[in-house]
Design a protein around this nucleic acid. Sequence first.
DNA 1: TTGTTTTTTTACCAAATGTTAAAAAAATTC
DNA 2: GAATTTTTTTAACATTTGGTAAAAAAACAA
Lengths: 190, 190
Amino acid sequence: MYDDLKQFVTQFAHLSREEWEAVMPFIEIRNLKKNDYFIREGEIARYISFTQKGYLRVLYNHDGNEITRDISPLHTFVTALPSYVSQTPSFEIVQAITDCELFVIYRDHLEALYDRYNNWQRVGRRIMEEMFVQTQSRIYAFITQPAEVRYDEMMKQFPDIFQHVPLQYIASYLGITSQSLSRLRRSVKF
Amino acid sequence: MYDDLKQFVTQFAHLSREEWEAVMPFIEIRNLKKNDYFIREGEIARYISFTQKGYLRVLYNHDGNEITRDISPLHTFVTALPSYVSQTPSFEIVQAITDCELFVIYRDHLEALYDRYNNWQRVGRRIMEEMFVQTQSRIYAFITQPAEVRYDEMMKQFPDIFQHVPLQYIASYLGITSQSLSRLRRSVKF
DNA sequence: TTGTTTTTTTACCAAATGTTAAAAAAATTC
DNA sequence: GAATTTTTTTAACATTTGGTAAAAAAACAA
């Protein structure tokens, strides 16, 4: 049932049986249809989600344009983090790109788990460290690589995403317009 | 002595007197001269630094060009994080931009502190959350703002940096060449 | 100070990406 | 399946940024 979740978290720290089972009562299964919202604009992000099935994106409205900041790979945690950590209204929106099955954990429950088990707190810390490292490499990509290379790398790293995610979201994630993405896709082919 | 450090960490969690004092024996003061290295390329990052005085930058060599990924504001933690978390040789270099006074803490000591005090583990987690949120807003800037706006925002947010940090490092941090930075600085003036 | 090295600026041209508009293709709805 | 809506592609032109080279300015060293 929670195999993927278990595998994900135990990458970061070994958990005793008791520690692992302590999270169980806090996991809530939520199914979203394509285009449903996980977090709406202005809402306070009171929970975090592990994507068991499907793809979410994190976006925000910038002068009427939707800016996709993140497209979640399978089996990772997603929320509108700025809102989640500060418990203030979210400028970010989290939306289902495809039908999704999510494991949802409320922040209050997770914080209680952290209070009780140092080891869970460690898992939380290590996951954040890892996410930070990944975000940094994305910044390196923006600094050093033209859009075409960023696109190629993304295709290599997340080939499954291209079967499920509209190109306009991918273009925004790469920091270009969908017209530009179209153009560089054409030039790559030949 | 450690007032700035104490203020920084207690932003993230309240610490009892015992908890605060537990870190003291682990703090090592290190002074760097301008251009000295804190972490060298290929070295394993075995410690983290709080910049009490001065500015560090995090960079790496990309086809012979130095790419500045980060310029540390005063009173924050810095290390070559990918190496630090995985304990593998660092591709990133951490170098003093100005003379620096650093509070250095070894990873082994910090991990021991985390093991012993859940509250310190919490501080570590919250700092990583905060750093992640900041890095994300930098990604938003890359996606939505042209270099000129990114430059203006940086000047607003870190005006002190411009008195100490060479423009070429700032250009690289902004993701442009120093020639381009020169050009847009000229156009802003009038 | 003088000479040397490094950094910043300027200029010109090239390449990458944005903007606007419209057509084509695909997905969705009735 | 036909009509409608959304997404993707194409095209022409504008703007931003990069690359190369060299001059000017600043920092550093003898």
